[in-house]
């Protein structure tokens, strides 16, 4: 279920290949370092202060941006001063440098980058736009991730992750839900990424997209069978429904008053445990669980209301008895 959860990182070559085309990245120097230098942090840094001598805060895993002000600053230095300023950066430990606005870095910089094997990239975009695109791209690319065994569906617009042991009927339940008009995101394996502090996005691994496996039918293509509206792209994970075999389901909720959660990548997601047994129509149970969740999100909790009503009834009965006793 969980591949080795090493800290996500990408090489500079992957960055160049996968980054938005709008950046039109060009490599000016340091091709040698494309495969062994890695970006580990989504936030960028600007080299300004470091060029002026304050190099303490250079973070090796970030993209270093060089814009108009850095180029001007270097331009008004003497060639010796320039060489010295560039040497102080210790180019050997920086992931990569991105020059914006199509500016030409001074020859000393290009030579130093080539010597150090530091990828020196260039984009025609101005710094503000480039920084936004780079940060957005890196945030998605470096988001913590994990592969979950389960089925992700869009049910009434809510991202529902069905989990449970193999053979419990996840795919059959999902197929039933698709036939009832809901949409498939991914069957069997779901790639989950944490794109924000409280936000999980699930999507299908490339190979599995649009496909399901149903015992007895084999591998089927949902878009071919049910049409394009039966599948969905990446979807936020809002609710986890865990299917358990009846005899193994120890903590079955009989009231539905307490809200349960399960943790995925450090985010708490509401959890419903559904025991499975012959005669229980799972798809309708899932639909109902989603309706309950939708109501609760809007502040309406039927189980709590019922419990309150019952408490009132008990109180009244208690009061009535006292009166009768007097």
């Amino acid at each position: 279920m969980r591949p080795a959860g090493a800290q996500p990182e990408i090489t500079i070559r992957e960055f160049i290949e996968q980054a938005p085309e709008k950046l039109e990245l060009r490599t000016l120097a340091g091709r040698r370092g494309l495969d062994d230098r890695r970006i580990t942090i989504a936030r960028i840094q600007k080299l300004g202060l470091a060029l002026a001598g304050f190099t303490h805060y250079i973070h090796p895993g970030r993209v270093q941006i060089v814009g108009q002000s850095e180029i001007w600053y270097l331009g008004q230095l003497s060639p010796d001063q320039r060489r010295e300023a560039i040497a102080r950066l210790e180019l050997g430990r920086i992931a990569c440098v991105l020059v914006t606005k199509g500016l030409e870095p001074p020859a000393e910089f290009i030579i130093a980058a080539e010597q150090a094997g530091l990828p020196l990239l260039q984009t025609p975009l101005v710094s503000s736009t480039a920084i936004q695109l780079v940060t957005d791209f890196l945030q998605a690319a470096l988001a913590p991730r994990e592969v979950r065994h389960g089925v992700l569906l869009d049910v009434y617009g809510l991202g529902v992750l069905l989990e449970g042991p193999s053979g419990v009927g996840k795919s059959e339940c999902a197929l039933d839900l698709i036939a009832r008009g809901h949409r498939l995101v991914s069957d069997d394996s779901v790639e989950v990424r944490r794109t924000g502090p409280e936000r999980l996005i699930g999507c299908a691994p490339k190979l599995l997209r649009e496909h399901m496996e149903i015992r007895g039918l084999g591998i089927i293509n949902i878009r071919d069978l049910f049409g394009v509206s039966a599948i969905s792209g990446p979807k936020e994970v809002d609710l986890v429904i865990r299917l358990e075999r009846w005899n193994e389901a120890c903590e079955v909720d009989r009231l539905g008053v307490d809200a349960r959660t399960t943790e995925i990548l450090g985010v708490n997601i509401p959890l419903v445990i559904l025991p499975v047994s012959p005669g229980r129509t799972l798809s309708i149970l899932v639909e109902t669980a989603v309706r309950i969740h939708l109501l609760r999100e809007r502040g309406y909790n039927a189980a709590q209301r019922f419990v309150r009503r019952h408490a009132e009834l008990v109180r009244e009965a208690d009061g009535g008895d006292e009166q009768a006793g007097e």
Binding site: M1, R2, P3, G167, D188, S189, L207, L208, E213, I219
Partner: peptide, 13 residues
């Protein structure tokens, strides 16, 4: 990569 050996899609992945 890891897979559930009882799930064909997972093994194919």
């Amino acid at each position: 990569a890891a897979a559930d050996a009882k799930s064909i899609l997972s093994v194919l992945m």
